[in-house]
Amino acid sequence: MIKIYHNPRCSKSRQGLALLEASGQEFEVIKYLDQPLSSEDLKAIVSKLGIKPLDLIRKNEAIWKSDYKGKTLTDDAIIEAMVTNPKLIERPIVVNGTQAVIGRPTELISDII
């Protein structure tokens, strides 16, 4: 089943959700700020995206700038930063089986649904 990791306060995430709704396919909405992801969940998502954990970070978030920017961090430390501070996670993320995309731009979601 398709999953969207969604933040309702984010316009890009709302656009991604609208695209999925318009597709007519079944999907699950995971509000990751309300249902925090585990490090295992994030590692699986990063693997499906084919990126490094750092590429999933929202680098303009205040918490990133104050607590992490400029530090040498392992991939595991970056994952833990996202577990502890889910606002750091780029959104929306859409997963369909073994494939995943960050929906920026929103049209990328069409590639996997």
Rank of each mutant, 00 (worst) to 15 (best):
K3V: 08
K3D: 09
I4P: 11
Y5R: 11
H6G: 11
H6Y: 14
R9N: 13
R9Y: 04
C10E: 01
C10Y: 02
S11R: 14
S11M: 05
S13I: 08
S13R: 11
Q15V: 02
Q15W: 00
G16I: 06
L17Y: 14
A18S: 14
L19I: 12
L20C: 05
A22W: 05
G24I: 05
E26S: 14
E28F: 00
E28R: 11
E28Q: 14
V29D: 08
V29K: 12
I30W: 02
I30L: 09
Q35V: 12
L37W: 07
S38R: 05
S39D: 15
E40R: 09
L42N: 11
S47G: 01
P53A: 09
P53T: 10
L54T: 00
L54H: 05
L54N: 02
D55L: 04
L56H: 03
L56R: 01
L56G: 03
I57N: 02
I57E: 01
K59N: 01
K59T: 14
K59G: 06
E61P: 04
K65N: 10
K65P: 02
Y68E: 06
K71Q: 14
K71P: 00
L73R: 06
A77I: 00
I78H: 06
I79K: 11
E80D: 14
A81G: 06
M82A: 05
N85K: 01
N85D: 13
P86A: 07
K87P: 00
E90P: 15
E90N: 14
P92R: 06
P92Y: 07
V94Y: 13
V95I: 15
N96W: 04
T98P: 09
Q99L: 12
Q99C: 02
A100E: 11
V101T: 12
P105E: 08
P105I: 12
T106R: 03
E107T: 13
E107P: 00
E107H: 11
E107W: 06
E107D: 13
L108E: 10
L108H: 14
S110G: 03
S110N: 14
S110H: 08
D111I: 00
D111M: 07
I112W: 08
I113W: 12
